[in-house]
Amino acid sequence: MTRFITRRTALLSAAASATLALTLPGRVLAATTHEIQMLNQHPEDRKLRQVFFPRIAVIEPGDSVKFLATDKGHNAQSADDMIPDGAEPFRGRINEEIEVTFDSPGFYGYQCQPHYAVGMVGLIVVRGDGMMDNLEAAKAARHRGKARAVWGDIWAEVDGMDLSA
């Protein structure tokens, strides 16, 4: 069977190919930057001191998190034993903002180094295939001081969340 390509068919085919090409990297094009504040006092509960707000962020692969140096004396850095295998650890400087892009699905614990023992910790959950691979290892990480209790609260909150996209 001989098939002739008309001008109309060629144009429709080219348009469909262009549309497909634009939608394939759609997650990259639609990447979002989420903001987390580093604070001396929680904005909604004045009794809570030395906090990240929000302390849990659920994001998509390719999204970024910008840690805002809202109050002085804080940094944001990945917590030991609390990032997926192959993911790069990060460490911001005191009083400086840091923006981190997360490509690997999983659970990323983070902390403020000067205020870790008083519980200034948080969690980033990157959804996607393999997201649950490091959950048990992250939950098993050992903590000291008030950070231990705050991590207990964070894990209880995560257990009650629907993390499916």
Results as ranks from 00 to 15, higher is better:
Ser164Ala: 10
Ala165Gly: 03
Leu68His: 07
Leu123Ser: 03
Asp162Pro: 00
Pro105Ile: 00
Pro84Ile: 03
Gly26Lys: 05
Gly122Val: 06
Ala156Val: 13
Val126Pro: 03
Leu29Pro: 00
Asn134Val: 05
Ala30Leu: 15
Trp151Leu: 06
Arg49Trp: 06
Phe107Asn: 03
Phe90Gln: 06
Ile5Leu: 14
Gly119Thr: 03
Asp133Met: 00
Ser104Cys: 11
Glu136Val: 11
Lys139Pro: 00
Lys66Phe: 02
Asp80Tyr: 01
Ala79Val: 01
Glu96Arg: 15
Pro61Gly: 01
Gln50Thr: 04
Ala138Met: 05
Phe4Trp: 12
Lys139Ser: 02
Met38Gly: 01
Asp45Tyr: 09
Val158Phe: 02
Leu20Gly: 02
Lys47Ala: 11
Ala16Gly: 12
Arg91Glu: 12
Ala15Arg: 07
Thr70Lys: 12
Ser64Thr: 08
Ile154Ala: 10
Ala138His: 01
Thr70Leu: 10
Ala15Cys: 11
Leu135His: 03
Asp153Trp: 10
Met1Tyr: 13
Asp45Glu: 14
Gly130Ala: 05
Arg127Leu: 04
Ile94Gly: 01
Gly122Asn: 08
Gly128Lys: 04
Trp151Ile: 07
Met131Ile: 11
Gly109Glu: 00
Ala79Phe: 00
Val158Gln: 08
Leu123Asn: 05
Ser104Pro: 07
Ala149Ile: 09
Leu11Asn: 09
Gly122Gln: 11
Met132Trp: 07
